[in-house]
C-alpha cells in the first residue's frame, strides 16, 4: 500500500480542485447527514456514486482503485460482523446450517454503503483541497476554533507519516532477523518497534511545535484569514447541493 499519500492533498488544476473548499465541505456534510437518515440501498449507492464521479473528474481514478480495494476488505468484514450478530429475519441455510439472515445481510450492506459514501465524500474533500485553504475556510467561514482546526490538520498529516515510519522500522528490524509472529510475540514487539516509533514521532512532533511557535502562532497576535471568494461555479455547485438536499428530503418524506 502506498501509505505515504493516503488522505493527502494531490495537486491538480481541475474543476473540482478549483471549487471553493466551502462547497466541498457542504457536500460532505450533505452526504454524511443523508447517509445517516437514509436506509435505502439504492439511494446510498447514488450517494456513493456522486463523490466517485467528482473524483474521476478530478483525475483520481488510480486513487479510487487503490482505496476501493482497501474499502472492499472493510466491507467484507462489516458484512461478516453483521451477519454474525444480527440473527433476526428469514434464515438462509446451506445443508441445514443457518448461515445468514436477510436482516443480517441487509444491515451489513447498508453499513458498508453508508461508510463508502462518507469515505469517498471525505476523500474528495481532502485530496482536492489544499490543507491551508481547508483550515482557512473552517476558521473564517465556519467559525471553527483555530486550535482544533490546526490539530485536525496535523493529525491527518501524521497518520500517513506514522504508517510509513512503522513500515520502515518493521523492515529495518526484519533485516536484523526480528520477525514477530502471533499473539505470543506481541510483548516482544514493543522494544524493537513501538519504542523507536514513539520516540521518532515525538521528536518530529517537537520540531513541528517549534516551527509553529516560530511562525508566531498564539503569540497574542490574532491570526486573520482572508476568506476565499465564492465564484460563479461555486454558487452553481451550492445550488446543485441545495437541489440534491431538497430532492432527497422529498424522497425521504415519500413525495417522490
Amino acid at each position: 500500500m502506498s501509505g505515504a499519500e493516503v488522505f493527502q492533498y494531490i495537486d491538480g488544476d481541475t474543476y473540482v480542485h478549483k471549487l471553493n473548499p466551502l462547497v466541498k465541505i457542504l457536500f460532505s456534510v450533505f452526504v454524511i447527514i443523508a447517509g445517516i437518515i437514509n436506509g435505502d440501498p439504492l439511494v446510498l449507492v447514488l450517494l456513493m456514486g456522486i463523490p466517485i464521479v467528482a473524483l474521476i473528474v478530478a483525475g483520481m481514478i488510480k486513487d479510487i482503485i487503490t482505496q476501493g480495494k482497501m474499502l472492499l476488505i472493510v466491507f467484507a468484514l462489516l458484512i461478516l460482523i453483521s451477519v454474525l450478530t444480527v440473527r433476526t429475519g428469514e434464515m438462509y441455510s446451506v445443508s441445514g446450517v443457518g448461515l445468514a439472515t436477510y436482516d443480517g445481510l441487509l444491515t451489513g450492506v447498508l453499513i458498508s454503503l453508508r461508510l463508502g459514501a462518507m469515505f469517498f465524500a471525505f476523500l474528495l474533500l481532502v485530496t482536492t483541497t489544499k490543507p491551508g485553504d481547508l483550515v482557512n475556510t473552517l476558521v473564517s467561514r465556519l467559525h471553527f476554533p483555530m486550535d482544533y482546526a490546526l490539530m485536525i490538520m496535523i493529525t491527518m498529516r501524521f497518520i500517513p507519516t506514522l504508517q510509513v515510519e512503522a513500515r520502515k522500522i518493521t523492515e529495518a528490524q526484519a533485516v536484523r532477523g526480528f520477525k514477530p509472529a502471533g499473539l505470543s510475540d506481541m510483548s516482544r514487539i514493543i522494544g524493537p518497534t513501538i519504542t523507536p516509533l514513539l520516540s521518532n514521532s515525538i521528536g518530529r512532533a517537537g520540531s513541528l511545535g517549534h516551527v509553529i511557535e516560530l511562525r508566531g502562532y498564539r503569540s497574542n497576535a490574532k491570526i486573520k484569514f482572508t476568506e476565499i471568494p465564492l465564484k460563479m461555479k461555486d454558487y452553481l455547485s451550492i445550488a446543485g447541493i441545495i437541489a440534491l438536499t431538497v430532492g432527497f428530503g422529498l424522497y425521504a418524506l415519500g413525495y417522490i
Binding site: D147, L150, M151, I152, I154, T155, M156, F158, I159, T161, L162, Q163, A166, L198, S199, S201, I202, G203, R204, A205, G206, L208, G209, H210, I212, E213, Y217, R218
Partner: peptide
C-alpha cells in the same frame, strides 16, 4: 523526549495531535 522542562502550549497541542494520529493508526 528526556527534557524535564514543561513544553509550551503549542508544542503540547502538536503532541496531542500526534497521540490522536497514533490512536487512529492503532
Amino acid at each position: 523526549m528526556e527534557s524535564s522542562r514543561q513544553s509550551s502550549y503549542v508544542r503540547k497541542m502538536v503532541y496531542a495531535s500526534l497521540f490522536a494520529a497514533l490512536t487512529a493508526a492503532a
